[in-house]
Amino acid sequence: MPPSDQATENSRLQSLEGKTAVVTGGAGAIGSAIAVELARAGAQVAVMDLLPEAAEALASRIGHGAVAVGVDLAVESSTRAAAEKVLQHFGSVDILVNNAGILSNHKMADTSIEEWRRVNLVNVEAAFLLAQIFLPGMRSKRWGRVINISSYAAKSGGLTAGTAYSVSKSAMIGLTFSIARETAGQGVTSNAIAPAYVMSPMVSEQLNDEQRAAQLAQIPVGRFCEPQEVAHTVSFLASPLAGFITGEVIDMNGGLHFD
């Protein structure tokens, strides 16, 4: 094949033209980078977020058929209504990115049952519910991608976060594996990304200067992860060229952890 033809074929295999994607927490630092990157690859994106105005602003900036969907993922009825709105608009969903999450830095003794439940509702239960709703459409088309944003905290026993958050992100990995096992023969892949120290409000606003300096000192590569780096990995896992990868957890931690 001539180089020009090969380049065209490679571009086609990386394209998400004709695909629809849902990104939860889509108006946040990581979510917005993911939504922009998927749209750049050709997908039509539904930006799901607790802040509808921020989601609207991002969808307007993205264009390319992007829509904003307000949702409170801690409330089952709100999650179901948001999913139904997406299905009414697009008909089906090809790519689900479960990115939304809330942080808890409290360790075991200081974690209330109310905090435990809310963290797990948003970080795990909503992801399960959205996958349950959108997977039938993926299966019927024999093409789909579920990409769950986990965390280094899941692999470190909460070194970088509290108990509820760390357990919820571990559960995201279990959910990823379960979906991958159930759908591997149906054209659907399910993978997770486990970032550490992404430059987002969790790092820039919820940690003071001393805490940020202490975290930075632990990272072998000497810097924080950028949201666009997570977005690039999501786009790769969503692409047709990643169809042979399922049940995988991609670490993005700057050398903190190897496996």
Rank of each mutant, 00 (worst) to 15 (best):
S178N: 13
K19D: 00
L129I: 14
M48F: 15
Q186G: 14
G28Y: 08
T24Q: 01
R181K: 12
Q44V: 14
W143Q: 05
L256E: 05
D209S: 12
G26F: 09
V249F: 01
T189F: 09
E226V: 07
H89V: 13
H232L: 07
V75R: 02
A83H: 14
E248V: 01
P220I: 12
H89E: 14
A164F: 10
I62P: 03
Q211A: 15
G174Y: 09
A153M: 07
D251C: 04
G91A: 06
G26K: 09
L16D: 06
R212M: 12
G26P: 06
S204K: 13
Q44E: 14
I219Y: 14
L256V: 03
P3R: 02
A41N: 12
L241R: 11
L241A: 07
S78A: 06
V230W: 10
S78E: 14
Q6V: 10
H64S: 04
K155D: 10
L135I: 11
A74L: 03
D209T: 12
M1Y: 07
A154L: 12
N98R: 04
S156N: 12
K107H: 11
S4I: 09
F236H: 09
M138R: 13
M172H: 03
R142F: 08
Y165W: 15
D209Y: 06
I34G: 05
T111L: 12
A184I: 11
H89S: 13
R142Q: 15
S190A: 15
S166Q: 05
E17T: 07
Q88T: 08
E17R: 14
Q132F: 07
G70K: 03
E125A: 09
I245L: 14
Q132W: 10
V47H: 08
G18I: 00
D72V: 02
L207A: 10
A242S: 15
Q186M: 15
M202F: 08
N148A: 03
E9Y: 14
M1V: 06
A196C: 12
I250C: 00
R145W: 00
N10I: 05
Q228C: 01
V234K: 01
